[in-house]
Design a protein around this nucleic acid. Structure first.
Lengths: 209, 209
DNA sequence: AAATTAAACGAACGATCGTGCTATTGTCAA
DNA sequence: TTGACAATAGCACGATCGTTCGTTTAATTT
């Protein structure tokens, strides 16, 4: 590995930490240069513009999430086991991410949702891929008979994303220690609902959706 | 109403718009002065510091939420009717708030969750009050017999907050037109779960939690 | 209408922002 | 070991940041 690639990786690691606490807009070249021990211009040359640096940070965050949360569960059997393991991994990631602050992508999702451009596209792509992963995971659980056949997997992903956001607010902003407990119970309720066969008041089983 | 109060209100209105699109860190005194037609120093004198301006913006946002979403439902009968109306009002608020961007408090909740100080305290207080309102609303629904007696109202509020965040991500960041549909279905599922009496596999009714 | 207080302005401050340049240093292959 | 090239530093730029101060204009009270 050449020198340039190595320092670039070191910069991105520090940038990820900074972004996690101060957000993408708090990520400043001068501060980042100071923390990495580089000169402003020396650091700048690695990325060409601030926006490209920010995009690189978002890509790095995604890669980090993949290795920490996604990859480990791919070895597990499809369906509910994999989905449960992913859920637990995700809650752990939100609870105690590998950087000092919260998940940068989650924060950036609300920070940049009204400012079109490459940054928002990058974040939107990340969130779309994540939701697709959940949706497919739920689909496998349906195929395996773990979930009811008429489950709306897109809605399932929507609800799971909601739990993750609520977790960050409860645990990180409010600092409530029992937050993780709520997360697990909300998740259990969602899984139970996905398993329960749809019933009408008269008791017969229905499969419309 | 004296002149100072009037212009201060005008400033806060414009500041709210600016914050909704660019976030609390994007709210800058120079830009705000330009948009309101005031001089930087003239505007600055109204608040004394940038942080106090930011706090004022957050207070204004809360007041706006109260008049638009909270107050209207207080006339409705307690329990499920009021809760349903609040839900619909909240989804509408998130979908099309009275400013160009998204809800500033929601965005700030993830923007400042790692930076202690008066700003974070203000946001945390707002979120705590909101959750207490939901919790009490659910409690009234339990008291009225609309929800099952063993419902955990704190968990109920947690889940509802999650739906709101997922809405913002889906509708605002991803721009999916069917987002509001998911919101309503997720909410319906949550209400149904709160109404459903807890059952064991053997069919008898249980009330443990 | 005059006196008094409140509100807004204009100019400047040091600091930091992102971004160009031109050197100088360091790294690797021939 | 030297030559080529990548990597970093140094310096400066215009712009903007939050903030202070003295002055001037406007509003309110007497």
């Amino acid at each position: 590995m050449s020198k340039g690639v190595r320092t670039r990786a070191a910069i991105l690691g520090e940038a990820l930490s900074l972004t996690s606490t101060d957000g993408l807009s708090g990520l400043t070249i001068g501060l980042l240069a100071e923390r990495t021990g580089l000169s402003k211009s020396g650091l700048f040359a690695h990325f060409g513009s601030k926006e490209q640096l920010q995009v690189a940070v978002l890509e790095e965050a995604q890669a980090c999430f993949t290795t920490h949360v996604i990859r480990p569960v791919l070895d597990l059997p499809r369906g509910l086991p994999r989905l449960e393991a992913f859920a637990e991994g995700w809650w752990t990631w939100n609870q105690k991410p590998p950087f000092p602050g919260g998940c940068p992508i989650q924060a950036a999702s609300l920070e940049l949702d009204d400012r079109p451009g490459p940054l928002r596209d990058e974040i939107a792509g990340a969130q779309r891929r994540l939701r697709a992963f959940i949706r497919q995971g739920a689909g496998m659980a349906v195929a395996a008979g773990h979930f009811r056949a008429d489950l709306d997997c897109t809605l399932f992903a929507f609800q799971m994303v909601g739990i993750a956001f609520a977790q960050t607010m409860t645990c990180r902003l409010l600092g409530e220690p029992e937050g993780l407990d709520f997360v697990r119970r909300a998740w259990r309720a969602q899984v139970a609902d996905a398993q329960r066969t749809t019933q009408t008041k008269t008791g017969e089983i229905s499969h419309d959706q």
